[in-house]
């Protein structure tokens, strides 16, 4: 159902491939998008990924961090990662300039179920940096716009300055995505919506809830309430998908860190079906 990634053509899953930073785009404070290219052309040719998958970015001497791929899967040769400075690896990455090299292992993990989305309506519910792993899904759905019903993105952040990719929203809207944005705290300049993302879902008209797929990525509490709202509106639990996060060390299911009950977030996830994880989501410390 949820495919395990096609691993790079590489017998040793511990071997990182050298990548070079082609360009860096500053997004918002402490968040930048790194466009990477493989130094080995053969790898570049082979590399493909599914929306929602992630790579382990490896800065020698510092460590590895799991970072989702944020570019369009159909755009061969373009490999973007949108990274927020959170600690050692991401902090060191932020100090690198275009041209710098480091390592990459991947792609890893499960993908957003695009094939299950097409044919019906899709609601994407996300907040903050959580939009990064969904950007490939937005592209993929727009690539297949004709096959989909209503497409809606509900996106929130703490403040207006925390909203990612705002300069792309108009393009997405033009190509057929409804984009609704909200912030937890307004500012004087903010003319948009104030309130939390699940509230946008509450008030959204869902014409065909049984045919609607909901894709969520953000803080677990947010996803939990978004799912509750969707369920309350008649969306079947099997059509709600969440992307989960746990400490990630190896990304290949061998180190034990990312377990979430029966699932390894790295290989069974990060994208998991809501009904399969719901009972554990609100268990403290699990």
């Amino acid at each position: 159902m949820n495919p395990v990634s096609p691993c790079l053509p590489n017998a040793d899953p511990w071997l990182a491939h050298t990548v070079r930073i082609a360009s860096i785009t500053d997004e918002i404070q402490d968040v930048a998008t790194y466009r990477l290219e493989f130094v080995d052309a053969a790898i570049a040719d082979e590399f493909s990924f599914l929306p929602g998958q992630f790579n382990m970015l490896y800065l020698p001497g510092v460590g590895e961090a799991a970072i989702s791929i944020s570019s369009d899967p159909q755009q061969r040769g373009v490999l973007d990662h949108t990274v927020r400075v959170a600690g050692n690896v991401t902090g060191e990455l932020a100090r690198l300039n275009a041209g710098a090299t480091f390592g990459l292992r991947g792609p890893f993990g499960s993908a957003w179920p695009i094939d299950e989305c097409v044919g019906g309506d899709v609601v994407i519910v996300t907040g903050g940096i959580g939009l990064a792993p969904l950007r490939p899904a937005i592209h993929e759905l727009l690539n297949r716009r004709d096959e989909c019903g209503q497409l809606t993105l509900l996106y929130g952040a703490r403040e207006p300055s925390g909203l990612l990719y705002t300069n792309e929203f108009d393009d997405w809207r033009q190509r057929g995505f409804d984009v609704a944005v909200t912030v937890d705290r307004g500012t004087d300049a903010w003319k948009g919506n104030v309130g939390v993302v699940p509230q946008l879902l509450d008030r959204m008209p869902l014409e065909n809830p049984e045919q609607t797929t909901v894709l969520c990525c953000g803080p677990e509490v947010m996803m939990w309430f978004a799912a509750r709202s969707a369920l309350g509106r008649g969306v079947p639990a099997e059509r709600i998908w969440v992307s989960l996060e746990r400490n990630m060390n190896c990304a290949i299911g061998l180190c034990g860190h990312c377990q979430f009950g029966p699932s390894f977030i790295c290989k069974d996830g990060p994208v998991l079906r809501y009904d399969q994880v719901a009972p554990l989501l609100r268990v403290e410390g699990f």
């Binding site: 404070q29 903050g128 703490r158 925390g162 937890d184 705290r185 939390v196």
Partner: peptide, 20 residues
Amino acid sequence: SRRLVSTRLQLLDLFAHESA
């Protein structure tokens, strides 16, 4: 009750760690 839940979620400040 929906309004109360939304207010609680706002209170939780779920994106605090993302703010510089």
